[in-house]
């Protein structure tokens, strides 16, 4: 790792102030992606600003039909939360299958969606549930938040404060794991609310996205069979040593079907 200057801030204002003053600053949330990258010397921020001391970014609350999860809430906390388990069990389940237990004890919701790894799990849920990302500046809809590979609508000095997940009548997340890294080769989050179906897909393409064709097929016919006729465009799919584009496209359908089945 190259040297850098570490600051632990205790308020959002301090965090914003610190990043504005830094020559090439980076926020660190859980650090489970950033620290390995820095260890390999593939990133060299001048300043690392730790959001771990900001209490207002932590915690889970349920208000009516909305589950609000603070950005610095760890995956383990989400997975273990009886509030989340009760309101959106698929979300608790998703959080409980990110990485491994030790990673879940440090990795955070905010860190995961700000990084927007093409194979991360949370973006599928944010999109699939139609969640809203709340920052120190504004609220961004899930659909607009993820803009490209590792890219989000966030500005450099913008801090995610919480994500507001609306409850769904039924929802499920199905993940096909990379056998080595355990990231999602394909992950599909399906949510059905009031007859409307939303599908969030991760791992398959450069950036998590809504499965519009799948939604079309499932709206009005919320069955696994409805997925059969959907064509998944292969040319948009990621392709790597673990899965070709063709296989990924196939898995999108299989995981969607399984998620639909798990909803019923």
């Amino acid at each position: 790792m190259y040297n850098f200057s570490y600051q632990k801030v205790s308020s959002i204002a301090d965090a914003v102030d610190a990043i504005q003053k830094a020559e090439d600053g980076k926020f660190v949330a859980g650090g489970q992606t950033m620290l390995p990258t820095m260890k390999h010397r593939l990133a060299s921020p001048s300043d690392v600003i730790d959001l771990g001391g900001i209490d207002e970014l932590k915690g889970i609350s349920v208000d009516g039909d909305t589950v609000t999860i603070g950005a610095m809430t760890t995956h383990a906390e989400v997975a273990a939360s009886s509030d989340v388990q009760g309101a959106i069990p698929a979300l608790a389940n998703l959080a409980g299958n990110i990485g491994d237990p030790a990673v879940r004890n440090r990795g955070t919701l905010g860190g995961s969606i700000a990084n927007n790894d093409p194979a991360a799990d949370y973006p599928a849920a944010v999109i699939g549930l139609g969640a809203t990302v709340k920052t120190n500046k504004r609220e961004i809809s899930g659909d607009e938040f993820f803009t490209g590979m590792f890219e989000t609508a966030l500005e450099d000095d913008e801090v995610i404060t919480a994500v507001l997940f609306p409850k769904a009548d039924a929802s499920a997340y199905m993940k096909f794991e990379n056998p080595a890294s355990r990231y999602a080769i394909v992950g599909v989050f399906v949510a059905s609310s009031g007859g409307a179906v939303k599908v969030g897909v991760t791992g398959a393409t450069a950036c998590a996205h809504r499965g519009m064709r799948l939604e079309e097929a499932l709206n009005g016919n919320f069955t696994a069979d409805a997925v059969d006729g959907v064509e998944i465009p292969i040319e948009k799919m990621n392709s790597d040593i673990h899965a070709s584009a063709e296989y990924r496209a196939h898995l999108v359908k299989v995981m969607t079907k399984r998620a639909v089945e798990a909803c019923s």
Binding site: H40, L42, P118, A119, M149, N238, S239
Partner: peptide
């Protein structure tokens, strides 16, 4: 290092 550690991302990037 980019090839050694980032194989899954090379095409996309």
């Amino acid at each position: 290092k980019l090839a050694q550690l980032g194989a899954r991302l090379i095409d996309g990037a």
